[in-house]
Computed example of a mutant assay.
Amino acid sequence: MPQDVRFDLPFRTPVSQHLEYAREQHLRWVRDMGLVRSQAGYEEYQSWDLPQAAIRTYPHASADDMVVLMNWFSLAFLFDDQFDSGSPDGADRIAEVARELIVTPLRPTGTRPRVICPITVAWAEVWEQLADGMSLTWRTRFAASWGRFLAAHSEEVDLAARGTVLGLDDYTAFRRRTVGIHHSIDAGERSRRFEVPAQAQAHPVMIGLRDAAADTIGFMNDIHSFEREKRRGDGHNLITVLHRERGYSWEEATDEAFLMTSERLRDYLRLESEVPQLCDELGLSADDRDRVRMGVEAVQHWINGNYEWALTTGRYAAAKEGPAATAELQGRGSLDDLLPV
């Protein structure tokens, strides 16, 4: 089954020791903020085990920062599950909330949201904590990455509502935006309290490296989440696109998706090997080179950490029963409505 598909990653990454403390604080926060309200919703959310994803993708965060990062994780995943992808009304609602989430980092921290619902109120709080101590350059970069992700997410809802399907080339370019990896890598800098030098961040090698990582993670995610998305009738999945466009069987489409993922991983590794030359070309100091090294490690943490989590999370489980299964069959992934009426 697709969730069981394994990849041979050429690196291993550390795991944080702050799981129990941070998870307890995080789960209490999720309930207190009204992000998960019903008992069935809470049990489904727990099965996703997002704290495991956080401790693997941000292994060097302090205990308190790990709580902040877990809280942030919940917003993106719960927001993704808030709509019936075939409903025009759902598309309008998701766009309204997405606009509010996009502009939050552009306002002074502590500003009350103009669109009030559990997601927007929680994000205003989390952003104030994430932005603390980071430069304007980092905050602007994060906001741009976050905004592109949310805009693409709203576009995906609109495409589904209009019944529009994407071809393979358009889909792969679109997936790079919807996977949300660029701002997630940016958050890796916040998790260790450092920033990649701006001139290195803007270099073509680093840009290509981040894009290759986004494709690798996005394609892996499509493979591991395929059964869930097929169950929901979601056509925005690499396996589904290959099946539809090339007439592959589901097995053939899965095999081709695996090959495409492996190719992008090789591209990433090639670009990673060029990073020392990038540092030489820019004449970086020893301190700046160290920050570039940690920036590359942040990417590795995401490739491997997300992969390890995806193999076991209940979010992608092939078989669902009870209220969660009913919600997915109705086109929703969440049991609790968190968006304004």
Rank of each mutant, 00 (worst) to 15 (best):
A257C: 09
H60M: 06
P197N: 12
L335E: 09
H301W: 06
R176L: 12
V5W: 11
P276N: 09
S145H: 15
Y42P: 00
W72G: 07
E24M: 02
F149L: 13
L282N: 12
A95R: 14
M294H: 15
P59W: 03
Q52K: 07
V241P: 02
R31T: 09
H182S: 14
R231D: 13
E100R: 08
S225Y: 08
D280M: 06
V36D: 12
S249G: 02
I303L: 11
H301V: 01
R28I: 05
H26M: 11
G283P: 11
S285Q: 09
V30I: 13
D222P: 02
A54K: 02
I217R: 09
H243Q: 14
P105E: 01
R93E: 13
V296N: 11
L136S: 13
D280Y: 04
F77C: 14
L35C: 08
P113M: 01
D186V: 02
L311K: 13
I181K: 05
W29N: 11
W127E: 11
Y307I: 01
G41H: 07
F219V: 07
V179I: 15
L101H: 04
M294K: 14
E245G: 04
E263A: 15
G188H: 06
D211Y: 08
M70H: 05
A61I: 00
L106G: 05
D32L: 06
L159Y: 13
P2N: 10
A151I: 00
E100A: 05
G41V: 03
V299Q: 11
L278A: 09
A257V: 05
T254H: 12
Y58R: 02
S47A: 15
V179D: 11
E256V: 07
W309T: 03
D132P: 00
D49K: 05
L278Q: 09
A161E: 08
D170I: 00
G218K: 10
A160W: 01
P2F: 01
A22W: 05
P88S: 00
F79T: 10
G163K: 05
R177I: 03
D84W: 00
W127A: 06
A187D: 03
H26V: 00
R176F: 00
M260R: 15
F77R: 06
Y171E: 12
R190W: 03
P51W: 03
H60C: 06
H183G: 04
G133F: 03
G235E: 13
N306A: 08
P108N: 05
A151G: 09
A325H: 10
R37A: 10
V68F: 00
A200S: 14
R37H: 04
R315P: 02
D170E: 15
R37P: 08
A213C: 14
W302H: 15
I207K: 14
F7V: 00
V121T: 14
R232N: 09
H183V: 09
G314E: 08
S225T: 08
D267V: 04
E308N: 10
R28P: 01
V67Y: 06
D288F: 03
W309G: 02
V241D: 12
N237A: 10
A212M: 10
T140A: 14
R6D: 12
S74I: 01
E263K: 13
P88F: 00
Y248N: 10
A173G: 11
